[in-house]
Design a protein around this nucleic acid. Structure first.
Length: 363
DNA sequence: AAGCTCAGCAACCGCGGCCCG
DNA sequence: TCGGGCCGCGGTTGCTGAGCT
């Protein structure tokens, strides 16, 4: 509902640059009494300023934990990535950079980094190359599409190895992301088919209607069944096995970003004659972000292999979901993901790969 | 040396959201 | 439930100093 500007009401209140004695007064008061109730602080501290001005001065300049000076390469890299994800959410970005204020980051972005990105031919708003600088990545994606459509994967033993399956899933993710980013530049791999057992999950992920790259949590929340749904794909080790792209990606509508999912392998036993392989593909409800492959299903037959795709397990980590997250957590999940320095995820690798700062000295 | 331009940055402003009576 | 007060955020403004003519 807005509010009346406090400074206009306080006639004769001082504006403009702060004097050292004003800084001293404010610092002394806050050191003794703490901060809060900003509107009352000027009077209590003996300052002829409005509360807002005091708050700004303290938060952006006087706070003892303020870190000043040049931004490091790491900080720049963090800013670029977070800005790509969050946009101009300077306070959110600042929360990931200890000692840096939103104002400082905003100014730094608008002066230094914007310029750098423009010089590099990158649109600072969309983070997309203005030229076709993504071509090396696109090449990989096109190779993937070509390989799949030619049946190379399906006819080889590649996917009898669950590690390869995991790698493929990673590639699929990257491919899908590239399609989302530049749909016209990335070939479709919908032509891929498989004769393996790929039951279409009775899943409601298609109910996702989010159209934006960063879906609004409230749009996404609550559109799935309350309970997780599970699908088990049984596979004989003697059969060619390939998870269907359609199974994996049908849950997406155009321009929808995938959520956080992990893939891991258990009881690797693939390729042995006479054994069967079970791939657990479990669909997580409630994230609103992803066809949600994760598994918590306990398998009774220990002789079979399984791939459990679970948020808790290591492997393929996608930002955006946790097991019980709701749509409103999505943004936080992305942030947590980015904070997770130990995360060995393909997302991290992907971000490293595509980050303009991935080449030392480039910035 | 004076005037001009521009980049950098501190501070301001208005709005939205939250809290509480 | 409503409305006022407060805080925080993001966009914008304007001051300052450096560099150039």
């Amino acid at each position: 509902m807005g509010r009346s500007p406090c400074c206009d009401q306080d006639k004769g209140v001082k504006k403009g640059p702060w004097m050292p004695e004003e800084d001293e007064k404010l610092t002394a008061y806050i050191n003794n009494n703490g901060y809060g109730k900003w509107r009352s602080i000027p009077q209590l501290a003996g300052l002829n300023r409005c509360g807002k001005s005091c708050r700004l001065r303290w938060m952006n300049y006087l706070r003892p934990d303020i870190r000043r000076g040049e931004f490091s390469d790491e900080e720049e890299s963090t800013i670029v990535r977070l800005h790509a994800l969050l946009g101009n959410k300077w306070s959110k970005i600042a929360s990931h950079l200890p000692g840096r204020t939103d104002n400082e980051i905003k100014n730094y972005w608008n002066t230094h980094m914007r310029k750098k990105m423009l010089q590099m031919g990158i649109d600072p708003i969309t983070h997309e190359p203005k030229t076709n600088d993504l071509s090396p990545i696109l090449d990989v994606s096109q190779m993937l599409a070509a390989a799949i459509s030619n049946g190379q994967f399906g006819n080889s033993n590649l996917l009898n190895n669950n590690t390869a399956l995991e790698d493929l899933l990673k590639l699929q993710l990257i491919h899908k992301m590239l399609q989302i980013i530049t749909p016209k530049a990335i070939p479709s791999i919908n032509s891929f088919t498989t004769n393996s057992l790929n039951p279409k999950p009775e899943l409601v992920v298609n109910s996702f209607n989010t159209k934006s790259v960063n879906p609004k949590p409230e749009q996404a929340a609550g559109q799935l069944n309350a309970s997780d749904q599970h699908v088990i794909i049984n596979q004989s080790a003697n059969e060619d096995f390939m998870p269907s792209f359609e199974n994996i990606w049908d849950g997406f509508e155009d321009n929808q970003l995938p959520g956080l999912v992990t893939v891991s392998q258990k009881n690797l036993n693939s390729g042995k004659p006479g054994t069967s392989t079970t791939t657990e593909v479990n669909y997580q409800a409630g994230t609103g972000m992803m066809p949600s492959y994760y598994g918590d299903q306990v398998r009774e037959n220990p002789s079979t292999d399984s791939i459990s795709i679970s948020p808790e397990t290591s492997g393929l980590n996608y930002p955006g979901t946790t097991q019980h997250s709701t749509g409103s957590d999505v943004l936080e999940d992305w942030e947590k993901f980015l904070d997770d320095e130990t995360s060995d995820s393909c997302w991290k690798s992907f971000l490293d790969l595509t980050s303009p700062t991935s080449s030392p000295g480039q910035w």
